[in-house]
Design a protein around this nucleic acid. Structure first.
Length: 768
DNA sequence: CGTACTAGTCTTTTT
DNA sequence: GACTAGTACG
């Protein structure tokens, strides 16, 4: 049997060897699901004569996609490049760029992010004279998203309750919103999926093409799919039925984004002939941590029965501490991490602090800074959501897609060109009544009586954009951005409160330029459209650099799929986690989702788990007094230690203010500038985290899903200069071996295939 | 037209 | 408590 298959355990192997027909892999936390998926793909190619281009592997994050590709690459070699590994959204974009003209859009459509759609919606409300006090744009959008995810048009939705006035109003805005997007040649995130399904439904020959292309389909994190995603997969798989989905119903935490847990729970109903394999051996955590996770999750009623086990020992008890306030909690966590490091029990990068809400990061950050602990915050304000970044991207979008009104309107007066609201409103009215785009209207401003006198200010702008358009083929993206900044004197004209803010913004712009450079390095003939597309589809977690020795701070949601030796879950209080909204909800499934989130958090820990909470904390400017989280009480007390101390046990040799002093100080004074990242010498500013992101994302080791089994780094029986054999590449000479922490990265010069870099544990190189 | 203040908002958020 | 968007004023 193939070595790729041999290294799997019985259940994993059974899953990997099942190639044909529907397959559901119920993969508990840390059970090596990524390994099963990658080895399954490798097995198909090397042993079953499956062509790589007939395989589609779908994930939710770019990071997961990158990792999967890399690991398949290492197993099967360059053929793997033809496997289609991508996120749902990226997959759809790729298909739509080819065929969306059949639906009446331009193939260079723009993708609107959440901020963009809010702007559009505000506009729509104004136009339809909707009272935004009664229907907030955000709430409208969230309903639209839900309705869209159920694949209902405004007409469909209205048909359910045509007499309902509120629904009439809503459907009117929904329809107008859709119209606006279409006019702007723009798609929102939901549309990417929806339009692809629409394309498949209306164009049988396109669907047929992709059905015959993707003979084998794999979907990761299946518990998080929504109705449209389900339909997309169903359509693609309906002809050949080789559909393999992997997931864990206990880790479904995105219901609020439309994820439908029934997709995984009912898989066997949709595919009665489905084979089901349960992966229950956990390779990540100690028995104690698993027991704690199990004791929590078993309180949930609607779940598939599972029993995770491990052959790791019991390990440490789960530590639990309650503090008087959140400052003390933060201080304890920072001290504890510092202590572990001093005692050489852990490196910074082995530690992660998880919390329910992003706002909780601030206190933790402040304390990390005080103690000189390097850290990275994942999430919070998205890099691409920052004002200066959005501005520059709006310039690029304007140059790229003339129909993207939103982008044009964002920058028409940034930097200030002396155009006021009235002028812009007149242009907007004219554009609307004459069915012109905003940009085209700018071009004929001198012929419009009401705005003719502002035409002198508008003309240079239009000319500038036109110049860039004509020069586009001769400029690199880097040159283009540089020139825009120079010509518009963007930085000089930024209005900033102080030097710190100026520096942050300039740094962010620098970082954007770094990203552009990295992007061009990777894609030789990179176009502007491609860059904008990549940017539209990345998230914060994609840029995490796991190689840096830094503590990670992130929400429980962001932590899904990651693992750390030392995990802290902070703010375990009723009202915060589970959140107030879920406690008061009359829908019990809301609380179950919170419990799953808790389960996800606990199962991130490999060796040691610490749970903390505070009796009081400031939430939204108000001090709240919270009880210990009900989830903590669900953990078998025999698994816990350090229960509820009145005073903190402190590392005696740590200098610094006593805790109570610190708490009081922090409570009234604010020694730092507003943005922790901006003034933190220890925290790598966002910039640095993401620097060269294109290169670092894929190679992260510590954070990868399923590195679990590979913890022990086996010594290599070959060295530099030795000749080795690879299953796929044949023989070659080892040129270089790098110690990548968890694994060796080996560079081999193959006789037939040339230089390849691969991870030793995957490559299974044999010394010849 | 641009600035300065005030009022409202604020879970989570793979894309 | 912090940030942003909207409005009133100069």
């Amino acid at each position: 049997m193939n070595q790729v298959i041999e290294i799997l355990n019985d259940k994993q192997r059974e899953a990997a060897l099942t190639i044909d027909g529907p397959l559901l892999i119920l993969a508990g936390a840390g059970s090596g699901k990524t390994r099963v998926l990658t080895n399954r793909a490798a097995y198909m190619i090397s042993d079953c004569d499956v062509r790589p281009w007939n395989i589609l592997a779908i994930t939710f994050t770019n990071k997961a996609a990158g990792e999967m590709r890399e690991r398949i690459d290492a197993l099967v070699g360059e053929d793997a490049e033809n496997i289609w590994v991508a996120t749902f959204h990226a997959t759809c974009v790729r298909i739509l760029r080819r065929y969306i003209d059949k639906l009446g859009y331009d193939t260079n459509f723009t993708i609107y992010d959440t901020d963009d759609t809010v702007t559009v919606m505000k506009d729509v409300c104004k136009r339809l004279q909707i009272d935004t006090k009664q229907y907030s744009p955000k709430a409208l959008l969230s309903t639209i998203s839900k309705v869209k995810n159920e694949m209902m048009t405004p007409e469909d939705y209205l048909a359910d309750a045509p007499w309902d006035y509120g629904r009439q109003q809503f459907c009117k805005t929904y329809a107008e919103y859709e119209k606006t997007l279409q006019k702007n040649n723009a798609l929102d995130f939901d549309d990417l999926l929806l339009k692809t399904v629409a394309l498949f439904q209306s164009q049988p020959e396109v669907l047929n093409y992709y059905q015959d292309k993707f003979l084998y389909i794999m979907v990761d994190e299946y518990q998080d799919t929504n109705t449209v995603q389900f339909e997309l997969i169903r359509l693609l798989a309906s002809k050949h039925r080789n559909i393999c989905v992997v997931g864990d119903d206990d880790q479904s935490i995105y219901k609020f984004r439309g994820a439908n847990i029934r997709n995984i729970l009912d898989f066997e109903k949709v595919y009665p002939d489905a084979k089901v394999v349960k992966l229950e051996q956990n390779y990540r955590s100690t028995q104690t941590i698993l027991d704690a996770a199990n004791s929590v999750i078993k309180q949930n009623a609607s779940r598939k029965d599972k029993a995770l086990w491990t052959d790791k020992g019991a390990g440490n008890k789960v530590h639990f501490h309650q503090f008087d306030n959140a400052y003390e909690e933060a201080e304890f966590i920072a001290d504890d991490i510092a202590g572990k490091r001093r005692r050489m029990e852990a490196r910074y990068q082995d530690c992660a602090v998880l919390y329910r809400t992003n706002a909780q990061s601030r206190l933790l950050e402040e304390r990390m800074i005080m103690e000189g602990i390097p850290y990275d915050v994942v999430g919070g304000v998205n890099f691409y959501g920052r004002r200066e970044i959005k501005d520059i991207l709006a310039y690029l979008k304007t140059i790229d897609n003339a129909r993207d009104d939103l982008a044009v309107r964002r920058i028409i007066n940034v930097p200030k060109r002396g155009l006021g609201a009235t002028t812009l409103a007149r242009i907007q009215d004219y554009a609307l009544s004459h069915e012109l785009s905003f940009y085209d209207t700018l071009g004929i401003a001198d012929q419009i009586p009401q705005v003719a006198k502002a035409a002198g200010k508008i003309k240079p702008f239009v000319e500038m954009i036109e110049t860039y358009r004509s020069k586009l083929p001769y400029l690199t993206l880097e040159q283009l951005i540089g020139d825009i900044l120079k010509r518009t004197e963007y930085i000089e004209n930024m209005d900033v409160a102080d030097d710190v803010e100026l520096q942050t913004r300039v740094d962010n712009i620098d970082e954007l330029i770094n990203k552009v450079i990295a992007f061009q390095d990777e894609h030789e003939d990179a176009t502007l459209s491609q860059f904008l597309e990549e940017v539209a589809l990345v998230s914060d977690i994609d840029n995490v650099d796991a190689d840096a020795d830094r503590v990670m701070l992130m929400t429980l949601h962001s932590a899904k799929g990651l693992e750390f030796p030392q995990v802290y879950i902070a703010g375990m209080e009723d009202g915060l986690f589970p959140s107030y909204m879920n406690i008061t909800s009359d829908d019990p499934s809301e609380l179950e989702e919170e419990r799953r989130l808790c389960y996800v958090g606990i199962t991130r820990a490999k060796d040691d788990l610490t749970i903390t909470c505070a009796r009081s904390r400031m939430i939204r400017g108000e001090t709240q007094y919270n009880a210990v989280s009900r989830f903590v009480k669900e953990i078998d007390p025999a698994l816990l230690d350090g229960s509820v101390p009145k005073t903190r046990v402190r590392e005696t040799d740590i200098p610094g203010p006593s805790m109570s002093t610190y708490g009081r100080e922090m409570a009234k004074s604010k020694p730092y500038a507003s943005s922790p990242a901006a003034r933190n010498a220890y925290a790598k500013p966002y910039i640095a985290t993401a620097a060269g992101a294109g290169k670092t994302t894929a190679k992260s080791n510590v954070l990868t899903k399923g590195t679990d089994i590979l913890d022990q780094k086996a010594p290599l029986d070959y060295g530099v200069g030795d000749t080795v054999r690879h299953i796929k590449f044949g023989t070659g000479v080892v040129e270089q071996i790098n110690d990548g922490g968890r694994d060796y990265e080996v560079s081999v010069n193959f006789e037939k295939y040339g230089m390849k870099k691969m991870f030793a544990s995957f490559a299974k190189l044999q010394k010849v």
